[in-house]
């Protein structure tokens, strides 16, 4: 009798707590974030300041090593270049998607989304097969007599950019396409009715109204490119390294965990800094939810 009452009392307490505290239902999520994300992250930051000695020694070492600064520059420059090219290609692609018949539009959508189902490693290797000195392109150009020695298509910035673009194109195309299809056709007619040539209508009305999609896509692509590892590893040159390759080098080859963690933290700051700067110029939440259709 006693135990039944206690049990009921306990349930009531839980029930009351659930109703009174809005945080309680979030508990499983919070626990997952803390143990799977915040804890390892905290550990990484902790290592960067304590291993092997306590202090800023790891950071001083990073910024005093020219090779590391070069690596930082390469990461940012190649990511920027790839994002820019991706935006141009993505815009043209999304424009054709948004302005063609339903069937063609679906076909283009499939072509850009389907490769996402193929493993990143497999896609990078196939790019290698296409770009290398004895690869598809060079062999083809040689066989028709256009070139004698192979073009330098691999082990350079160009190859890494091609790799990033081929992986990231869907993330550029989709937000741009989403903004484009939301543009009211009547606005374009209104422009034309007021005397604007089709080119002017595009420049004055269509382009400005589709720019939020370009910004959203560029932000996604740039931030993801910063952390690329497999693509620069397989397609890039050994002398121009991405920060993520650097991290892997220090931790896997040199077993300097503290210093590797430091490079990781710097990569994280780079990413957060990009988002911070972007947020000064646009409402990220709004832009991303409007252009990607997420609510």
């Amino acid at each position: 009798m006693q135990s039944v009452e206690t049990h009921a009392g306990f349930s009531r307490t839980i029930g009351r707590a659930l109703r009174s505290s809005p945080l309680l239902p979030l508990l499983p999520g919070i626990l997952a974030i803390v143990f799977l994300f915040l804890w390892p992250l905290g550990q990484m930051i902790y290592f960067s300041f304590t291993d092997p000695t306590v202090g800023l020694e790891n950071y001083r070492r990073f910024f005093q090593t020219p090779a590391e600064i070069r690596s930082l520059g390469t990461t940012m420059w190649v990511s920027f270049l790839a994002t820019l090219l991706c935006a141009v290609i993505g815009y043209i692609y999304a424009y054709s998607m948004a302005n063609s018949s339903k069937a063609v539009s679906r076909l283009l959508m499939g072509a850009v989304v389907l490769p996402m189902g193929v493993n990143l490693l497999v896609r990078t290797f196939s790019l290698q097969a296409i770009l290398r000195d004895t690869g598809l392109i060079n062999e083809l150009l040689k066989s028709i007599g256009l070139i004698q020695s192979p073009l330098p298509l691999i082990r350079n910035t160009f190859a890494v950019s091609v790799g990033i673009i081929s992986m990231e194109l869907p993330f550029m195309v989709l937000p741009i396409y989403n903004t484009m299809v939301q543009i009211n056709r009547k606005l374009l007619l209104a422009g034309e009715g007021l005397g604007a040539t089709p080119a002017r209508v595009f420049l004055d009305i269509y382009l400005p109204l589709s720019l939020p999609g370009v910004f959203a896509g560029s932000l996604i692509v740039f931030v993801s490119s910063l952390a690329y590892y497999v693509v620069p590893q397989l397609l890039g040159s050994g002398s121009e390294m991405f920060l993520s390759q650097d991290v892997s080098n220090w931790i896997q080859l040199q077993a300097e965990f503290g210093y590797g963690a430091t490079v990781g933290v710097i990569l994280l700051i780079l990413t957060l800094g990009t988002l911070l700067i972007a947020s000064l110029f646009m409402n990220i939440d709004k832009t991303l939810s409007e252009t990607t259709g997420a609510k």
């Binding site: 009547k186 606005l187 007619l189 209104a190 034309e192 040539t197 004055d204 109204l209």
Partner: peptide
């Protein structure tokens, strides 16, 4: 259409959302 010089008012007005009222009116 752009050489016909017709003044059209659409059902939902079709004002250019990224331009000020003044720029909308001055556009033509």
């Amino acid at each position: 259409a752009y050489r016909r010089n017709m003044g059209m008012v659409f059902q939902n007005y079709a004002l250019f959302p990224h331009m000020s009222i003044l720029d909308n009116v001055a556009y033509g």
